[in-house]
Simulated scan of single mutants.
Amino acid sequence: MVELAARAILTETEHGTVLLDEHTGRYWMTNGTGATVLRSFAAGGTVLEAAAALCASNTGVNMDDAERDVTALFEQLRRGGLVLP
């Protein structure tokens, strides 16, 4: 289960989401694909569940590629302190 850190604020935008780190003021803008993953994380989903959601929302994305991409995003967010494993 992945959880957004308390300092992370997720906001929907017209084209995706913005994830704000309240402690540093840094933010990450995502497109619709990233938004799907972040919504899954915000709901307490796992990396595999986020990858499955990505596959369901994008025709042509296979599970192996989705899992690799979601894992990479998760690792970036974890290093930044924005998600908790």
Score class of each variant (00 low, 15 high):
Thr17Lys: 03
Glu3Val: 13
Asp64Glu: 14
Tyr27Phe: 09
Val18Leu: 09
Pro85Val: 10
Leu84Met: 12
Thr11Ser: 11
Cys55Asn: 09
Met63Glu: 15
Met1Arg: 14
Ala52Ile: 12
Ala53Thr: 01
Gly45Ile: 03
Arg78Thr: 08
Leu38Ser: 04
Val83Gly: 12
Met1Ser: 14
Ala72Glu: 12
Gly44Met: 06
Ala42Trp: 07
Val37Ile: 15
Arg78Lys: 14
Leu48Ala: 10
Ser57Leu: 07
Ala35His: 03
Thr17Phe: 11
Arg79Ser: 08
Val2Gln: 00
Gly80Asn: 02
Ala53Asp: 14
Gly32Ile: 08
Gly34Val: 08
Thr13Asp: 04
Asp64His: 05
Ala66Asp: 05
Ala8Phe: 02
His15Ile: 10
Gly34Trp: 00
Glu14Thr: 15
Asn58Ala: 04
Thr36Trp: 08
Ala51Met: 07
Met29Lys: 11
Glu12Arg: 04
Val70Gly: 05
Ala66Gln: 02
Arg68Tyr: 10
Arg78Gly: 02
Leu48Pro: 02
Phe41Val: 02
Val18Ser: 00
Leu10Thr: 08
Leu54Pro: 00
Thr30Val: 07
Ala72Cys: 09
Val2Arg: 14
Trp28Glu: 01
Arg26Gly: 13
Asn58Cys: 06
Leu77Thr: 03
Arg78Ile: 06
Arg7Gln: 14
Leu82Gly: 03
Ala8Val: 11
Ala52Trp: 07
Val70Ala: 05
Leu77Met: 11
Ala50Gln: 13
Trp28Tyr: 11
Met29Ala: 15
Gly34Ala: 00
Leu54His: 03
Gly16Ser: 03
Tyr27Cys: 13
Pro85Gly: 13
Ile9Tyr: 01
Asp65Ile: 08
His15Val: 00
Leu19Glu: 07
Phe41Ala: 03
Gly60Ser: 11
Thr13Gly: 09
Ala43Ser: 10
Glu12Pro: 02
Ile9Trp: 05
Ala43Arg: 14
Gly32His: 07
Ala35Met: 11
Arg39Cys: 05
Cys55Trp: 07
Thr36Met: 02
Leu82Tyr: 06
Ile9Glu: 10
Val83Ser: 01
Thr46Arg: 06
Phe41Gly: 00
Glu22Trp: 08
Arg26Asp: 10
Leu82Asn: 05
Gly16Pro: 06
Val61Met: 13
Leu77Pro: 06
Leu48Phe: 09
Thr33Gln: 05
Gly81Trp: 05
Gly25Ser: 06
Phe74Val: 13
Val18Arg: 08
Thr36Arg: 01
Leu38Gln: 06
Phe41Lys: 04
Leu82Thr: 12
Arg39Tyr: 09
Asp69Thr: 09
Ala35Gly: 04
Arg79Cys: 15
Asn58Tyr: 04
Ala53Phe: 03
Leu48Gly: 10
Asp69Val: 08
Gln76His: 07
Gly81Ile: 13
Ala42Gln: 07
Phe41Glu: 07
Leu73Ser: 11
